[in-house]
Nucleic acid binder design. Structure first.
Lengths: 340, 340
DNA sequence: CTGAAAGCGCTTACAG
DNA sequence: CTGAAAGCGCTTACAG
């Protein structure tokens, strides 16, 4: 590295002040167009690199937005992130990403780091067990927070997610309408709002159809392909011999179908399976997965817009914004027929 | 937000200088242990937030490391990233992630942003068509770069990736040893070093076994599940009726198997399929995928370590470090039998 | 072991 | 339309 080029270097070589250079580089109308061009050319020629930390120290805005979710390798979050990225790119913000893996400490460390870097805002899907103070920390230090996919009732922060209770009832009703009566629910946890909502949606749909709810038909836990795959053994050995499974999400459904196939049964034919989310992958699974579109791209896009609007000064109403899920019927569900 | 707490606030309330506070908060032995504790307690009590931009402006180190790959939603990169994250977390570095989607402009913007933020270093899998100047830009401005998964011969930067030519020959030889003679290669591109190496490895393995290479058995392009799925139609209609397919990666292989199943054939039985990478998902695919372990976690871990070592002053030898791939035989490959 | 002072590279009133 | 000067919040020699 040679010697650092800074504003004053440009100003010096051109015989003008740093104030004018600073203004010109940010396209201020206060600087004459010709001067502006001369300055920009010189900056380019010298290989000038704008020092954002200096600027940020002065203005106390950094252009950095933090995003923290459970796991970016989970395509559900991946699809949300992609939408956030698209929206943020457009407004020239830099985003810093982190997984919390549901560790409250890892999440808090991330929020602190973001504050230290002068983050302008944060979009997060809070870790299980997040104490409200951890989110309040952000807001108290002038860093607005927006929630996606999971709610935190205590704080009334702007939140964007799907209507889980309604969505899961769509899947359950679809199976009921095909004649299924013994329907298991695979995966999820009572520790998140999403988990509770989906289980209630499933229970309510069964009750409305006059089907007795058998708690043994619930296999909580799985949230991944691996989890769904492993749950197949448990599912297939249930004495009630369920003919259908409502899965926590597409990953669990695909894993479960793989496990069912491994056991010699045909998913779709022998056992009807529904997913949740409608990941890109759902349509090309074998059999193609019947699932519930959960609006990941919408969630990401709206959350990013809400944050940008807030940073621009407009104050949208807080509270939960629910995206309405939609049924996607494919080949993994078929009319009821008894299991041998 | 209330009024900002800074070093001088702490110093003021305690009646000492900011120099002492600064030293104490970073555990300098220059400050007496009792003073240090008193200062730390006060910092905590006041809710002090360290201002990294100010510190970074002064020290010209930021603790930020950039990582840019083709697409973080691709589990191949996801597994590399997870290993990088683990290694970087340990040394209290913050990492900024970006996709370039093989857009040279998006990649350059990212490098520039990183320089503006004072990034300490960057780990990247360069976009197709990256001009050497773009990487030189980083080095020239004092930001060391480490390459993963893809090479850029021109610059001699430290590079960590699998030995593609050797790895693909493992898969090809495995199929040959099962008696297959008509073996297609699905996916990949000649525009990356990886793509060229894998195709050559496949061609060489066939030649060594005395099998004539038929260029029509190559279906270049696919790199995703969707791509593999769509390629199935083309593959199944090849007049040569190949009985096996060496796939560009696990995603293509899984997609291809889904496509084969959709067409009424049984992947593994009717058509043997190999993947590449050994993603977590390979083992639970149906049938379980025979593939080549490509050492993603190793690549990520070693690249992160190499960068941290360089930042700590030690200068490892540049050049390409190849991870040796290993065969993972599962159920998607079986002995040859003619196609009807 | 602790303090006074300069300086990192910007931006922003304030003058002219 | 342009310039001189202060200040953002740290860290680091340098004194004592």
């Amino acid at each position: 590295m040679v010697q650092k080029i800074k504003l004053s270097t440009i100003a010096g070589t051109l015989g003008i002040s740093t104030a004018t250079v600073s203004l010109a580089l940010r396209d201020s109308p206060l600087v004459a167009a010709t001067t502006r061009e001369r300055i920009k050319d010189q900056a380019r020629a010298l290989g000038y690199i704008y020092n954002r930390r200096a600027a940020s120290l002065r203005t106390s805005r950094s252009g950095i937005i933090g995003v923290v979710v459970h796991d970016i390798m989970n395509p559900f979050y991946g699809e949300i992130l992609k939408a956030i990225e698209t929206e943020l790119d457009r407004s020239r913000h830099t985003f810093i990403l982190s997984n919390h893996y549901d560790s409250v400490e890892k999440q808090r460390t991330f929020i602190e780091t973001l504050l230290q870097l002068g983050g302008d805002g944060v979009i997060m899907s809070p870790a299980i067990g997040t104490p409200p103070e951890d989110l309040a920390l952000a807001e108290e230090n002038g860093m607005p927070a927006i929630l996606v996919a999971r709610s935190m009732e205590a704080l009334g922060l702007p939140t964007f997610r799907g209507d889980d209770s309604y969505g899961i009832s769509l899947a359950t009703n679809h199976l009921i309408s095909l004649g299924h009566r013994s329907i298991a629910m695979i995966g999820g946890t009572d520790q998140t709002s999403t988990g509770r909502d989906r289980y209630h949606g499933y229970v309510n749909a069964l009750r409305k159809a006059g089907i007795e709810v058998d708690p043994d038909l619930r296999i909580p836990g799985p949230r991944s392909k691996q989890g769904g795959f492993e749950a197949a053994v448990h599912f297939l050995s249930l004495p009630q011999k369920p003919t259908a499974a409502v899965c926590w999400n597409d990953l669990v459904a695909i894993g479960l179908m793989n496990g069912i196939a491994r056991a010699g049964l045909v998913p779709g034919k022998d056992i009807s399976v529904t997913g949740y989310d409608d990941l890109e992958e759902a349509a090309i699974a074998t059999p193609a997965l019947t699932t519930v579109w959960n609006g990941q791209a919408e969630v990401g896009r709206l959350a990013a817009r809400a944050l940008l609007d807030r940073l621009a000064g407009s104050h949208e109403p807080d509270g939960i914004h629910l995206i309405k899920p939609e049924m996607r019927i494919r080949q993994s569900t078929e009319p009821y027929r008894p299991r041998s």
